[in-house]
Design a protein around this nucleic acid. Sequence first.
DNA 1: GTCTATACTGCGATAGAC
DNA 2: GTCTATCGCAGTATAGAC
Lengths: 203, 203
Amino acid sequence: MYLAGSRQGGFHCSAGDRLIESTRELLWERGYVGTSPKAIPERSGAGQGSMYHHFKGKPDLALAAIRRTAEEMRATAEGVLDGPGTPYERIEAYLRRERDVLRGCPVGRLTMDPYVIASDALRAPVDETLDWLRERLAQIVEEGRERGGFAAGLDGEEIAATIVATVQGGYVLARASGSPAAFDAGVRGLLSLLSPPADTRAP
Amino acid sequence: MYLAGSRQGGFHCSAGDRLIESTRELLWERGYVGTSPKAIPERSGAGQGSMYHHFKGKPDLALAAIRRTAEEMRATAEGVLDGPGTPYERIEAYLRRERDVLRGCPVGRLTMDPYVIASDALRAPVDETLDWLRERLAQIVEEGRERGGFAAGLDGEEIAATIVATVQGGYVLARASGSPAAFDAGVRGLLSLLSPPADTRAP
DNA sequence: GTCTATACTGCGATAGAC
DNA sequence: GTCTATCGCAGTATAGAC
C-alpha cells in the first residue's frame, strides 16, 4: 500500500508514484467523474490489479494525486512570490509566469467537480492551497502599501482575492474562446489597475 | 422532435421544455459527464423513451440546454448593464448582483467540461456569451473613461476581461472554501481598484 | 507485486407495446 | 407521445494465478 506523504526513497519511479502521476494528468484533463480506474493504470503502463494493490480505490488515489498537485502548485507560486523585486514586481511575475493556459488550473479545476467538493478530504488540499496563496499575496500587497507602491486605501485580503480570482477566471475565458488571449488581457487589465503611480516606480 | 429556438406556443410547459430544464439543472450541478440520460427524464417526471423521442441523444439535449442557459445569462446581464447610473455604478451593479455563488456559474462551469470544449457546437454558446459580456463591459468602461469616471490610461477590453475573470474566478474561490466570502472579497477588491477618484464622484 | 479473468453495476440508446 | 423492457458497453472493483 502506498503511503501518502512518503516518497519511498525520494525517487519518483515506484509503481505507486507512476499511478499518482497518471491520475494527476487525468484529473487535470477530464476531472474526477471523467477519470476511470481503467484509464489510470493503462496510462502508466500497468495492470488494473496493480493499482488496487497500492490504493484502496479511486477516491484514495485521487486524494494522493490532489495532494501532490496542490503541493506542487504551492511550491511554484512560492518560488515566484518569494523572489526578488518590489511587491508590484513580484505580483506581476506571478501573474505573468508561464502557464499552460488552455489546460486550465489543475487545482482550481477541481472546484467544479461535485464529487471533490462534496468530500471534505478531497476539497481540503484545494482550499488550503488557494487560501495560502491569498494570504501570501495579501502580505505582499500590505507590504507594497507601506512602501508606497500601492494606494493607501486598498485592502490586502481583498486585492489578493481579486488577483487569484482574475487568474482562475482567466482560465475560464481562455478555455471558452479556445485561445489564451483573454487570459492575458485580464492579467494586463489587472496590472494596469494595480500599477503604482509613475513617481514611485523605478526609472 | 423538439425544435431548438422555437418555444412551441411560448409556454414553458411542453415535454421538450421540461426535459431541457432538467438538463440545465443537471449540467449546472454535475456537468456533462456527470449527467446521465437516465437522470434527465427522471427529474422531469418522464420516462426515458420520451426523451429519445424528442431529442436525438444526450449531446442534442445538452446543446438545447446550453443555448437556453447562455441566452438567460445574457438577458440577466443585459438587464443590469443597460440600467440607469454612471458607468461605474452599472459595473458595480453587475458585480454585486445577487448570485447563487456556491453553485457556480452555469455558463462558465461548462468550460471545465472536456466534452463541451471539444465540441465546437457546444462551446459556441458559452464562448459567444462570455465574449458578448466582455464587449459590453468594454463599451461601458470606455464610456466611463471619456466621462472621466475611469483613469485615462485604462484599456476597455482589458478591464472588461479582468471584470469577467474576477467573477468567474470568484466562483472558484467560493466553491473551494465552501463560502461566498472569497467571491465578495474579490469583488470588493476589484471595485476599490476601479473606484474613480473622489472628485469625479457624485456627492 | 503484477497480471489476466471475471463479476456487477450503471450508462447510453433502441424496440416495440400501448 | 409515452411507457417498460432490453441491449451492448464501459466503469468500478475483486479473485486468484504467477
